[in-house]
Design a protein around this nucleic acid. Structure first.
Lengths: 212, 212
DNA sequence: TAGATTGTTAATCGATTAACAATC
DNA sequence: TAGATTGTTAATCGATTAACAATC
């Protein structure tokens, strides 16, 4: 799958480079080469060079990139610089955790409010964010012009919530329910596939323990 | 990347098929074809057929698969049938949410306890699970023979926690910190790359809003 | 100039898709 | 038998890797 001219494979790796660059100690030289990044991350240097070339053209032979500039370009490219508001539906344990998590701000995501069908889940969270009855979504979503929706409801309810979001102007959906969501082609769905991750872990384990 | 003879691409799709099959209504016929699954999920039928062939050879021309059997085979293959114990390090908001989440049991994951460097985070959670000081990990991990570790600490602490886990017998790591983890080749790391997801969402949005 | 590092062009590899033969 | 559906073999596509020319 390709995305904005950049393959999703590349897009998955860019945040890793960015994280590595940002974690460099203060004393580090102010330039860095793709070669060095590759060595540090244990990956192929050609791949790093090619990935970086899709984001920046400030690489200079013998020097590499100015670290600060590269960080800037990566953040710009990844959209971490502009803040996007989001609404979340499903204020269960996972939903609430995401809602209260401060760390997404660094990635330009601001969850402004949440919704839940269960009235008992509504009210204010400890961090002061509001959880409304799902029936209020229509009104609030449009009024606040929110374009990102986060789905943390059980699998059986996910498609319904998804449809509701789209009807109210949501353009991009971050889905944590373990189901495929049917959407029009102009809507982006990004599913966090935890079930697949778990299968990998347990499969690896089964093999390791069996081999012994 | 290949895994157990099955590409990770296939492994990502299998849980989706499984979820779809399990969500079928009671009144549905007890057999189903790859063609039907593909149509329902909006994906290629050849791909579904090939994916299923890597899990089952019970497919019959004209009939397809017996739904219940296929569910069984998928669950077996994905390792959801045997339960694996896991420990979690980093009892912040996300860590605590995962710790208290009941849904992982369906995937064979049982988080038995958690650890945190911050003494104030220790104690019992509302669901009765214990959070211990990180210093107890060594002792408890080995004693309980836990093989899966979940990392939900900040990026800067992740590699240290990872090393500690491996030193204490952990063989598979589920990493939620946005960093690359260096591990020996016999250890599996599966990173949940939320930063990349967010980049995709905001990138899609930027494009949509710009096009208008 | 020499060497490190870049970006590019060509070769390889793997995954997806298409075509088709097998079979219930 | 005819047709739906399977599994397989070949073709295409895309991503990764290797080789190399360009340049600070």
């Amino acid at each position: 799958m390709s995305y904005n001219g950049i393959s999703t494979a590349i897009l998955q790796r860019l945040p890793i480079y960015l994280g590595y660059l940002k974690a460099l100690p203060d004393g580090a030289p102010d330039n860095i080469s793709a070669t060095a990044i590759a060595a540090a991350l244990g990956t192929g240097e050609v791949q790093v060079r090619k990935d970086l070339a899709s984001v920046s053209n400030a690489g200079k032979p013998k020097i590499g990139y100015i670290t600060a500039d590269l960080i800037d370009e990566l953040e710009e490219f990844l959209g971490y610089k502009d803040t996007n508001d989001a609404v979340l539906v499903g204020a269960g344990r996972l939903g609430r955790a995401l809602l209260e998590y401060e760390g997404f701000k660094a990635y330009g995501l601001n969850i402004v409010m949440a919704f839940d069908v269960d009235e008992r889940a509504t009210g204010k969270t400890s961090t002061g964010k509001s959880v409304f009855p799902l029936s209020k979504l229509e009104n609030l979503c449009k009024r606040m012009n929110v374009k990102i929706g986060i789905i943390t409801v059980p699998a059986s309810a996910a498609q319904g919530v998804c449809d509701l979001m789209i009807k109210n102007g949501i353009l991009a959906i971050w889905n944590f329910a373990p189901v495929h969501l049917d959407v029009p082609s102009n809507i982006l769905v990004r599913s966090e596939n935890m079930a697949a991750s778990l299968a990998m872990l347990s499969g690896h384990l089964a093999k390791k323990l069996f081999d012994k």
